[in-house]
């Protein structure tokens, strides 16, 4: 029996001619927090969608709890997804129902709990993200950070086996961020939830992650425990963790020569009109 809840083997994924992933392998161990990090545009959110079966890889396998996701039927895929909770970058709360009903939604869909029990569970989840008082507010009445915390409560409402967090710390004030970091760690420790954490927040991610993958240019450039990543001598890792503009990881998206693109010539003498 594998100890990995998610096992990605030799997976490639293309958007048109552009390779997002080239033959990568990633293992997400059961009951651990795995952070996926890397520069913007590396395809970290795409990776979560591939794990959840919303996108199909061009080649390779993605095993989720022993099931090869790209080859599952629509019915089986929906069964597997009941084991997953996901926090989307935008929060993705349902805008026609209030915060309470948003968090209650997966409970009403997938359990036979009475409304009394659902109410208790929802209030407990909202309390843990500091939004019990906002239960009756509509999503449009929440700030960006509050909406993401409400979405976080919804993501773990069913205490799923796997929770995928897409940028959980974005838009949070320092106090809220501290609470969210502690909450992710607590959920992992108390109920043994497997967590996949996609974030740019280096210090917070490394503080709670058991394993870290750093992706760049469609490949895994580094992997290991948080400590191993901190001690890494790889230039790309040092540049990313230190936030350095110059290094092997390009800041600019692939482009033609700047001067040629801008039609700039030294002796042109052009001026703004």
């Amino acid at each position: 029996m594998s100890n990995n809840f998610v096992d990605i083997q030799n997976m490639s994924f293309y958007r048109g001619d552009r390779a997002i992933y080239k033959d990568i392998s990633i293992q997400i161990p059961k009951g651990k927090i795995t952070a996926i990090m890397g520069p913007s545009g590396t395809g970290k959110t795409t990776l979560l969608r591939l794990i959840g079966g919303q996108l199909k890889p061009d080649s390779g396998d993605i095993f989720l709890d022993g099931k090869n996701v790209p080859y599952l039927s629509r019915k089986d895929l929906y069964l597997v997804r009941k084991k997953i909770g996901m926090l989307f970058q935008s929060g993705a709360l349902f805008t026609d129902i209030n915060v309470f009903d948003n968090v209650a939604f997966p409970l009403r869909e997938h359990t036979d709990f009475s409304e009394e029990i659902i109410k208790d569970i929802v209030l407990m989840k909202l309390q843990s993200v500091g939004l019990r008082g906002a239960a009756q507010l509509m999503p449009s009445e929440l700030s960006g950070g509050m909406a993401r915390r409400a979405a976080l409560a919804r993501a773990f409402a069913l205490d799923p086996e796997l929770v995928m967090y897409d940028e959980p710390f974005a838009g949070q004030d320092p106090i809220s961020k501290g609470v969210v970091v502690a909450l992710i760690k607590r959920l992992n420790e108390s109920v043994g939830m497997t967590s996949v954490l996609v974030s740019h927040d280096v210090s917070d991610s490394l503080s709670i992650a058991d394993y870290v993958y750093i992706l760049s240019g469609g490949n895994v450039v580094a992997k290991g425990t948080s400590e191993e990543i901190r001690q890494s001598n790889d230039e790309r890792v040092i540049q990313f963790l230190g936030g350095l503009p110059d290094g092997p990881v390009p800041f600019h998206f692939d482009a033609a020569d700047y001067q040629l693109d801008m039609n700039m010539h030294v002796n042109d003498g052009g001026r703004l009109k």
């Binding site: 909770g85 996901m86 993705a92 869909e109």
Partner: peptide, 14 residues
């Protein structure tokens, strides 16, 4: 556009 359909799918709700 606001990923509400995606979030339904990921919750296992068709």
């Amino acid at each position: 556009a606001t990923e509400q359909l995606s979030s339904l799918e990921m919750m296992g709700v068709d």
